[in-house]
Structures are given as structure tokens and as C-alpha cells.
Computed example of a mutant assay.
Amino acid sequence: MSTHAELTRRCFEAYEKKDRSLIEPILAEDFTFSSPLDDAINRESYFERCWPNSEHVGTFEFEKLIEDGDDVVAIYLATSKDGAQFRNTEVFTFRGEQLVHVQVYFGSDTKESASQED
């Protein structure tokens, strides 16, 4: 049996490896995803709208990964393939070993990434 933190790490690993087969078994059939751009979209819409972003992802570095009951809070620094960086916070909600909801809070580009745009 995997911990919720381990399952959360596997979701991010799927993006790093561009391997959808790593994340598919974790997402419940009734999975929903919310962000400032998405309002509780379903599993199918998540794969249509969000999964293509894996092509731009380089790495994720966890700054905090906090497991609290059925929830995991992940605060991370993401680095894209082109070197741009940003921080986000995500809350993963599980039912057993199935991920039922992700709520994303967008951060901002890091100071270093913003200065690269000048």
C-alpha cells in the first residue's frame, strides 16, 4: 500500500517522464481538477487540457510535501524544458489509493526566470 505522499510524487513523476501510464491508475473515475483556469473539470477534460503540458515540463522540486489524512499539500518549484521556473501549490485529495481531486493555486515566475525575459 502506497502512502498518499508517494502517490502524489508519482503524479509529478508522470509529468517529468511524459508517461501517462504512471498517472492513469491513480486518478479515480470521478476525478476532478480545479485551478484558476479550470473549474472542477472531469478526468477526460483533465487529460485533454492539462496532460499536454507534460511536454513542456522539465523537473519538479518539492519545497514542502505535507500529508494530512486524505490530503497532500505540495509546494514546488517547477522548471520547464526551456529553463523557466515557477512555484505552485497543489492540494491532492485521496479516497483510499485513488486521487479524487486536485486544487491548484498558481504561484509566479521566480525572480531568476522573470529576469531572463528582459
Rank of each mutant, 00 (worst) to 15 (best):
A14E: 03
Q85K: 15
E55W: 02
P52H: 10
L22I: 05
R95D: 14
H56N: 12
Y76Q: 14
S113C: 04
R49C: 07
E97V: 06
I66P: 03
G83S: 11
K64C: 13
D19R: 06
K81S: 09
R9I: 05
L37S: 11
I66A: 04
L99Q: 02
T89G: 15
V73S: 04
S115H: 06
E48K: 14
G58E: 00
C11K: 02
F106Y: 12
A28Y: 03
D109I: 10
D19Q: 08
K111R: 13
G83T: 02
D68Y: 14
F33R: 01
E90C: 09
H56D: 06
Y46I: 09
F92T: 05
S45V: 12
G96Y: 08
L22F: 01
A14V: 08
T110V: 03
S34T: 09
H4I: 00
L99P: 03
V57G: 03
D118K: 10
L99F: 10
D82M: 10
R95E: 15
F31R: 02
D71G: 12
Y15P: 03
S113Q: 04
D82H: 02
V57R: 04
N88H: 13
S115A: 15
S108F: 10
K81T: 07
L99H: 07
P52S: 09
Q85T: 12
D38F: 14
K64H: 14
N88A: 13
D70T: 01
E97T: 13
A14R: 04
E112W: 06
E63G: 08
D39M: 11
R95P: 04
D30T: 12
S2C: 00
T32M: 09
S80L: 13
R9L: 05
T59V: 07
R10I: 08
D68L: 12
D70K: 08
A5K: 15
F92H: 09
T89H: 00
I23M: 03
F47G: 05
A114G: 03
A78R: 12
S113L: 05
S21E: 11
F92L: 01
T8L: 05
G107R: 07
Q103G: 11
N53L: 13
S35F: 04
N53H: 09
F33Y: 07
E63L: 15
I26M: 02
A114V: 11
E6L: 00
G69R: 01
V91D: 06
S113M: 05
S113H: 01
K111W: 08
Y46R: 11
D19P: 04
E24N: 00
D82L: 04
E55K: 15
A74R: 04
T59N: 04
F92Y: 14
E44V: 08
Y15V: 03
T89L: 12
R87A: 08
Q103V: 13
T93E: 12
A40Y: 00
D109P: 07
E48M: 11
A40D: 13
